[in-house]
Computed example of a mutant assay.
Amino acid sequence: MDELTMVREWDGGTASDGPSVQARADARARLRTAIDEESRSAASRGRALSRRVMFRASLAGLGAAAVGVAVVVARGDEDDGTPRLSTVSATEVLRRAAERSRSQGSDLPVPRNDQYFYTKTYIRRTPVKGGKTRTWTDESWMSVDGSKPSLREEYGKIHHDPPLGEHEVRWPPTVYSKLKAMPTDPDKLLAQFRFGGEKTPEADRNAFFEGCMLMMGPRVMPPGLQAAAFEALSKLPRIRLDYDDVDVVGRSAVGVSYPGVDWTFLFDGRTYDYLGLRTKGSVPKKVGKDEWVQTGWYWETRTLQDLQVVDRIGQHA
């Protein structure tokens, strides 16, 4: 999936440490410039932005308005199976999601660098102002370390992606050894998400941004990393529950978001399983010689239905 191939240049630090703070800041500035240029170019050709550009633009954009700070969720009664209702905060949802992640673990093998991630992703898009909802179920094969060509299906269309260039890397990484080098202590991971910055709204927004990127998948998480990510983000003071009535592949979801970020984490309201991400997107439209507006706003949810580690493109398990 191309949204995971967030290409950034290494500029100082070791491979296990990832890009330096300055390198990330510089990369963000270059990405925003590239987004503007690519948006105008794509719209002038009469086609939608590529998935890579759409992903970058969404993460850099403004967030949707919040609709509450707590939500009523169903809790199963261990004695008779009757749901109980309780009110939880965004912080509590993330903490329970962390507990759920630790208890579940993973049955996926540690991927080799020469293998592929096979994914089946369910996408649901609904216009903000009402209209027809569209859905897709896409299958993709992504090279684990980016050294091989990948095959990506996006909104039902097939794309053949070349290997990463000599100075290109994925961040967050998909290589297991690099993921394993990331801290599983929530406080240390949060500091890394903040790029070592102070506890400011901007640093916290960066942290939520990084957490979204880490959870976009596909990647095989080392033990405790996903749980640590949820616990780290639970410490952010401005996180909020976004909504409680979204259907994700037949499951009702609760969302956790952060002001200024267009992405929302989705969790099962009963089990606190991580389900996927929701975003607000749009299509640029040219209205003058050098003037553009964003139109066709929509809500989109993505749910990873299947993830396997395979040896070749076309293999499912």
Rank of each mutant, 00 (worst) to 15 (best):
Q104P: 00
T271F: 07
A66R: 13
L307G: 05
T295R: 12
L49A: 08
A97S: 11
R84D: 08
P237Q: 03
Y258G: 08
V261L: 11
M215N: 07
D187K: 13
D26C: 01
V67D: 11
I239W: 01
Y272A: 06
R278D: 04
D145K: 03
R32F: 02
Y298L: 03
C212Q: 11
T137G: 00
I123L: 13
A48R: 13
N113C: 05
S44M: 12
G81H: 09
K157N: 08
A57W: 10
E168N: 02
A66K: 09
P127K: 06
R125G: 00
M6N: 12
P163R: 06
D306T: 15
E78G: 05
G255F: 01
F193M: 12
R219G: 03
S147I: 03
L275D: 02
Y116P: 01
R40A: 14
M221Q: 08
R40Q: 10
G68F: 08
T137N: 05
M216R: 12
V175N: 04
K178Q: 14
G13W: 08
L277H: 14
L31W: 09
S106T: 15
A65P: 02
Q294I: 00
D242Y: 06
R32Q: 13
R219T: 12
G61H: 08
R8I: 15
Q226M: 14
V128K: 10
F117K: 04
S50C: 03
G46V: 07
T200Q: 06
K285I: 02
P201I: 02
R219A: 15
A90K: 02
P163I: 02
A70W: 01
S257E: 09
A181N: 06
T82Y: 07
